[in-house]
Design a binder for these strands. Structure first.
Lengths: 141, 141
DNA sequence: TTGAACCCTCACATATATGTGAGGGTCAAC
DNA sequence: GTTGACCCTCACATATATGTGAGGGTTCAA
């Protein structure tokens, strides 16, 4: 497929697809007329890139972890220098931290929405303790 | 505490703490000499903000969800307009998508690391098999 | 009373991801 | 053979989060 179709199917501007290519996250074949040509695999690949970008990973890091996400991944073993593996372990751990942070906060938002939809109403009898609770309000972020 | 201590305890530059204040993510009291004064709660609050920023949420959104994360949150219920609740639901869903994307990719990285460490340990104590795999590797390229 | 170590505001600079548009090919349909 | 919908490169613009530094006040201890 050409860039326009990939753009529509991944909801990503042509500009960005060319940018990702420039940043070497993807590679494109070229048709005789110079047009870029992509095969089906790129739909998922681009959506994966977008997901990771949206989750806060910079292109520099995405470029490093993408090769590990290919299956079969054996081809990429030889590229794995010890420094690279260290980077990957660090990134894996950062991703886990991000996940936990997101889960905690998503659950808070979720709880909030649940309580609102249950029809919470201000109860003057419970306002007494508010000050005390404020003290240990934010935990573990 | 003053901004320097908060900065050290949250590993966040003074510049950014002032920026978060300008963006109304946090508020500071002022001492008579004009210095900012923070109480303990801000340590967690700032770390929460940093976690969310790192997870890809823009300040605009963080500003909207932060009030829901306060406990007790009752104070903020009356502010919840229907549009606001819609935004929150959308953000909750986006956070869930981010979480799933991160988990998928983290697990892939993790699997990769596991396989590398099973087959090819850069650790000098366990280098037995490396030679064969290196041969394979080079012919695959 | 001087100096170090804080703090203030303000402004300009940088990196990253993204938008926009100019100037110009390619190609299929009318 | 003209038109419209694609594609190309290149360059400039924008938004967001962050760094850096100038110019200047405050506090405290030697």
């Amino acid at each position: 497929m050409r860039i326009g179709e990939l753009s529509e199917r991944t909801n990503t501007s042509r500009r960005l697809l060319r940018y990702y290519e420039e940043q070497m996250l993807i590679v494109s074949a070229r048709m005789p007329n110079g047009y870029r040509e992509y095969d089906e695999r790129f739909v998922d690949r681009v959506m994966q890139i977008r997901g990771l970008l949206d989750a806060g990973l910079p292109i520099r890091i995405i470029k490093q972890i993408l090769p590990c996400l290919d299956k079969p991944r054996t081809i990429h073993f030889p590229d794995a220098t010890p420094e690279m593996l260290d980077t990957l372990r660090r990134e894996r751990d950062r991703m886990t931290e991000r996940i936990n942070c997101l889960i905690r906060n998503r659950d808070s938002v979720s709880d909030y929405l649940d309580e609102v939809s249950k029809g919470w109403r201000p109860d003057p009898d419970q306002e007494r303790d508010r000050h005390d609770e404020l003290i240990d309000a934010h935990s573990a972020n």
